[in-house]
Design a protein around this nucleic acid. Sequence first.
DNA 1: ACCTGAACACCGTTCAAGT
DNA 2: ACCTGAACACCGTTCAAGT
Lengths: 208, 208
Amino acid sequence: MSTLTAGDRPARPYHHGNLRPALLAEAVRVLAEGDAASLSLRELARRLGVSHAAPYRHFADKDALLAAIAQQGFELLVAQVEAAAAQHPDEPARELADTGWAYVRFALHQPQHFQVMFGRGAPPATAYPEVLAAGQQAFGRLLRVIEDGQRAGRIVSGEPRELAVAAWSQVHGLAILLLDRQLPVVDEAECEALVRRCVQIQQVGLGR
Amino acid sequence: MSTLTAGDRPARPYHHGNLRPALLAEAVRVLAEGDAASLSLRELARRLGVSHAAPYRHFADKDALLAAIAQQGFELLVAQVEAAAAQHPDEPARELADTGWAYVRFALHQPQHFQVMFGRGAPPATAYPEVLAAGQQAFGRLLRVIEDGQRAGRIVSGEPRELAVAAWSQVHGLAILLLDRQLPVVDEAECEALVRRCVQIQQVGLGR
DNA sequence: ACCTGAACACCGTTCAAGT
DNA sequence: ACCTGAACACCGTTCAAGT
């Protein structure tokens, strides 16, 4: 009874060794169906066939679990933005537009991560230095696009950090409003069109 | 014992009549110290000296209470944006900048309302038609600024709704990032400078 | 009409104790 | 080293019963 014969599959494969990654993966799965507030450590433990106290061996508390997911998210975001920016390195306008759309697409495709990274029940990033660092790396990537564009004479001169904040806040706002369903958009194609149009407006200028 | 003499103050003034507004006011007070997730109906009831079941006489559930606060928030926002926009009706660039700053200032000064209106544990606006309508009224106010500017020849031509979305997402992104402390800003003066600079960048155009 | 008290099914977190 | 089980102090929500 207490030993497994060859044909048996262990009923709870997470008992030893990989509970931490299993908790993270399961959390992302649960987040896909709800928000961070309705995610519970007890439910994760239940799903993984482990006692409700077991997660506390791997995470100090619920916020620490969320912070780990946020960090993961920033790494994914950096990778995707990087890939988008790399496609047209000598067309700054297009590079910026692709970068912006990659940002919003990430928010729409990985809402679980995005929601934990920003807004709602997200743990205050300031309390988790690794998360803060991951976020700044993503910002740094955008900064490079701006600086390259300035060198190529295709982006207005000015403090690059300010221009990057302007560009970031634009796409960040779009991502949030789209996720909150505050904009009348039905499918992803419409999303992309809207985002590219807004980025274009920002490039050309709203005033006259 | 069971009657109040002239000098007595009733220990629980909310027992009859005004529990609903009292709950809303107390909720805003509690939200000032935490987020929507950590607001509890039981705590509100406790603070108001009422049983934990009493709130359910006035709100179907916790989300309904939050939706009522969100609606209040949209009304406040519309009033403040309206006041800002009215100051320089014949200088569209300035009007747009003032409107944008009024939006972000609202988010910074009334974070309790802003958080419930957008993101985090906010009740899905789609479930509360009054909230949706209040939000659209705010958007409509911005739309008017854009259209007036176009008529005056100071804002680029194009679909006004698209231009309004671009402007909205810009300031909305700024508001969220500032509230999340993702931007290195220390006081309100710096916030205002940053917001006005971003709005200016959007007006002049990022590209060249 | 409005409020109470008990009840149910949940949480996060801690801690002694087990293997 | 990692996990369990009981325990504590909370939740949201419902419902019979009180005034």
